[in-house]
Design a protein around this nucleic acid. Structure first.
Lengths: 92, 92
DNA sequence: TCAAATTACGGTCGACGTAAGGATC
DNA sequence: GATCCTTACGTCGACCGTAATTTGA
């Protein structure tokens, strides 16, 4: 599991559509397909159901979506917190 | 920033010593040096002070350490939660 | 047939390890 | 000189994009 896989996953889960997700992410479809599959392989769980209309998020995918957003937000908070000049604990 | 960088960072921060950290992580020193530096470069902050005895964690590094542990724990929780057979919300 | 996902394939970029190079006591 | 961390360098695996293939209404 990598952070970029989680980013990919969140967008695909939101769009439920690979090619739209690819546009939003500025990548082509193949990397998305592969990374999503790699995630499913690693977690030993199917996250989406593939249909001719797109990808439908499965219940396990819904759960991962919550985790993924939390993780990516935590990363973002870390980045913000480390940004130069931020004092230790200004309020206390 | 990658998850493996964060894992590397946490161990180096705990050991304050590259070669011990390398042993714990089953990698050689050079990757550690490089990844820690890459992290510092990306965050535009020094995380450690290099001394002839080892690496001393700087205040900014202490802050990142907290974030990093939180992120890695969140990843671990996600993995556990997705592990097969776990029911939706058993208590409620 | 059309629109979607997937697989094939070639190229590039990143990460590792061994080995060599400082720096500090 | 010993013990750190770092840089050099070659190799190998990972990821991407274009193009071809498959699948289902």
């Amino acid at each position: 599991m990598s952070l970029s896989q989680l980013e990919y996953f969140v967008v695909v889960a939101e769009e439920e559509h690979l090619s739209r997700a690819a546009k939003r992410l500025h990548v082509s479809q193949p990397p998305l397909t592969r990374q999503i599959r790699a995630l499913e392989d690693e977690l030993e769980t199917k996250l989406f159901e593939r249909t001719p209309r797109g990808m439908r998020l499965l219940p396990t995918g819904v759960r991962l979506l919550e985790h993924a957003r939390g993780i990516l937000n935590a990363v973002e908070r870390a980045r913000m917190d480390l940004r130069v000049g931020l004092p230790r604990d200004p309020a206390r």
